[in-house]
Amino acid sequence: MGKGDARAESRVVLLDNGSVNPDSVLAGRKLAEALSNRIGEPVDLVSVAHSDRIPAEDLDGISAQVWDAYLAAMAESGVGEVRVAPLFFGPSYALRKAKKLAAAVETRESHLITRWADCLVSEDEEEGILSKILSGNINQVLNTIDRGNPPPRVLLVDHGSPFPEVTERRNLAAGRLARVLGSRVEGIVACSMERREGEVYDFNEPTLERALEGARKEGVKRVILSYLFLFPGRHAGTGGDIDQICQSHGWQESELLKTELIGFSPRLPELLQARLVALG
């Protein structure tokens, strides 16, 4: 980000959780560039945390930006407004933390206003762009399966969250996806990669582990794992937590098929643009 850009009156931010995986940051930058091309103004990729631990040499010589330092720089340079497109499916802990940081900066720097677009799963739309992204990813897998076989069950898996509002958004996405796919699949089961212990977090059920066990017990012959994840990392990447969970339950590659990650969809910039347009 050059000095001239920093002194613009308004900035657009693509805000993600952050990662220590350089590939995730580089993929995020490509997404920010694609969004910039759609809206006709610069877009800064900023992470809530973690990404600043990656050496700059692993990021094409450009250090990752993190939210607290970015806000401080914008306030110092006189930027009046930051519009944020969150790369979050729901109001997660990291997004809540980011909003609190922004509110604290606004209290100190009265000239700086932060405006927030909706999450990727919106309560205000029906079968919109995200449903089309998810169904498109699943249809790509379905097209590789012999139509003579029984329809597969889809497991829509997210990380899992201590906040029920996040899980409600995931379940909302699952219901919309079921309406779009119809009889092409046996059903949609929303599940969590992991969850915290205690009854208070039972809203995360079923976990991916229990969803796989349930499918096996119910005689389901084939499962499609639909990722509610953006980019590869220690959870959704090759050999990551989700792969290990699947392998530990004995599902063969021909029985358990996986979709592409959402972050690589060519329609994701369109979705983010729609969120910014709705922001006004």
Rank of each mutant, 00 (worst) to 15 (best):
K3A: 11
G4A: 13
R11K: 10
V13P: 06
N17L: 01
S19E: 11
N21G: 11
P22I: 08
S24T: 05
G28D: 01
K30H: 04
A32N: 03
R38T: 13
G40M: 13
S47R: 10
S51T: 11
D52L: 10
D52P: 10
A56I: 10
D58H: 12
W67F: 15
Y70I: 07
A73W: 08
M74Q: 13
V79P: 03
E81Y: 08
E81M: 11
L87E: 07
L87H: 02
P91T: 04
Y93N: 02
A94P: 09
K97P: 04
A98Q: 01
A102F: 07
A103D: 08
T107K: 06
S110E: 08
L112M: 11
W116Q: 05
L120V: 01
S122Q: 10
D124I: 11
E126T: 05
K132R: 04
Q140G: 05
Q140D: 07
L142M: 09
I145G: 05
I145V: 12
I145H: 01
I145D: 03
V154H: 02
L156M: 13
D158P: 15
P162M: 02
F163C: 12
P164K: 12
E165T: 11
V166S: 09
V166G: 06
N171T: 03
A173W: 12
R179Y: 03
V180Q: 07
V180M: 10
G182M: 01
G187E: 07
E194W: 13
R195S: 10
R195M: 13
E199Y: 12
V200E: 13
D202K: 09
P206I: 04
E209T: 10
R210I: 06
R210K: 09
R210Y: 08
K217W: 09
K217E: 15
E218W: 06
E218R: 08
G219K: 12
S226G: 01
S226M: 02
P232N: 06
G233D: 01
G233Q: 00
D241G: 01
I242T: 12
Q247M: 14
H249A: 04
W251I: 11
W251M: 07
S254N: 14
L256D: 15
T259S: 05
E260V: 11
P269W: 11
E270I: 09
E270P: 04
R275E: 00
L276T: 07
V277W: 05
A278G: 08
L279Y: 00
L279A: 04
G280W: 03
